[in-house]
Design a protein around this nucleic acid. Structure first.
Lengths: 223, 223
DNA sequence: GGTGGTTGATCGAACGCTCGCTCAGTTCCC
DNA sequence: GGGAACTGAGCGAGCGTTCGATCAACCACC
């Protein structure tokens, strides 16, 4: 018995993963359009391409869907974000590009980001904390970049303003998706990004006089 | 027949108003805590102090409650706001104080503001547009103040940045309520207000060199 | 002052419906 | 032919909403 396929006691792990990805994908679109509470499990099932019964083979409850969505979305955002950041950059150029990448990912994954920020509050207990923690960790990423610039002597900024600056970046991204009918009519993402970063950088006393935040151009690798 | 009381064909208007205020007050608290979809009409009735049957004497549907809430909240915010603004101020001091007043009202009416921003999207059609229009008009108030300062030659700011600046103020207020569990741990409202205004004003080229945005102190009339 | 009638405010059981979720049965594929 | 994958009718709970019953206040009339 060399390769006797073990009759798995559990269901095929890969299938579970695939099915859950289908569910998440359908759910993101629905939650984005109708909200978590406004979406029924039947709708999720139908949009995923199977019956309500099958849906419940892969999830335990409706809230599980939201949890899967938030979890996946966060990972997707962070992963895409990290892929966009140019590892060769240092100093202010790097800080600039990290923020720029964040805005671009937010624009690229609008539906996902909106759900992550808006619907996660419907989660309860553990799951809610878990997701909010993930959100916080994005803020920490910005904080690290800013502190790195401070340590290198590139900028000066009041200690109490660091955290607020990071909040403002996060929220600026969130708002791009949240009230799109207002902002997105006036700006495209690159203009929005440039203006927000310019505003943010005015809060830094910049010591590196050679630094000039370049206007955005489409030089990032494709999405 | 001097004072013959006319048997009113319609219900007592004043009673309707009072009852609706009761309903709105209870609903704000519930919507804030559990969201619109997460709140039942029975809960609203009980929290308002009467039965489900009576509730429906004063509203037409559940969505009516949300509409009443959004409408009332907006008016309350604007009214309190206008009362806080010192009419004697002009120029940059006035702009500064208008923004400061906005933050103070937002802090004072946290629950209401959060519901206004977060739950209004559950409205449909006309009602949604109506509320969004009211929201937009708050932004316009800031815009007017900024343009007034520009016309007076007090500040210079890129035309395309004006709208974004106003938008950022609104969002900063929203953020104060939306992520209160994290932000309000780090700052009190006055510190938050000072820092946000400082950040905003860095975006203006200030021509009036005598202007020094005073640190907040509790000099406004009591709430 | 007592009485019967009218009115408007309030109540809560009940209705019809939709929801999240289950499970006995079917289909599909190795 | 056996088990994994899938189905959808059906369940009970809970939802928004309705409506006939109840109650207190008031008025006209004797």
């Amino acid at each position: 018995m060399k390769k006797k396929k073990v009759p798995s006691l559990v269901k095929d792990e890969r299938l579970i993963k695939t099915r859950r990805e289908q569910i998440v994908k359908a759910a993101v679109e629905l939650f984005n359009r109708k909200g978590y509470h406004g979406t029924t499990t039947r709708e999720v099932a139908q949009a995923s391409g199977f019956s309500i019964g099958t849906l419940y083979e892969y999830i335990g409850s409706k809230e599980d869907i939201l949890y899967l969505v938030c979890d996946a979305v966060y990972d997707e955002v962070v992963e895409k974000w990290e892929r966009l950041v140019d590892k060769n950059l240092v100093g202010l150029e790097r800080l600039h590009q990290v923020i720029q990448s964040y805005f671009r990912v937010v624009d690229d994954l609008q539906d996902e980001v909106l759900v992550m920020y808006q619907e996660s509050k419907a989660l309860s207990g553990e799951a809610l904390n878990y997701v909010l923690q993930k959100e916080l960790s994005m803020k920490v990423m910005f904080e690290k970049e800013i502190r790195s610039c401070i340590e290198k002597g590139l900028i000066t900024i009041d200690e109490e303003e660091i955290s607020l600056a990071c909040h403002n970046i996060l929220v600026a991204g969130h708002m791009w998706t949240f009230r799109r009918w207002i902002i997105q009519k006036e700006y495209d993402i690159e203009a929005y990004c440039d203006l927000q970063i310019a505003q943010l950088f005015r809060g830094f006393q910049i010591k590196d006089h050679s630094f000039q935040p370049a206007r955005s151009n489409i030089n990032s690798e494709g999405r």
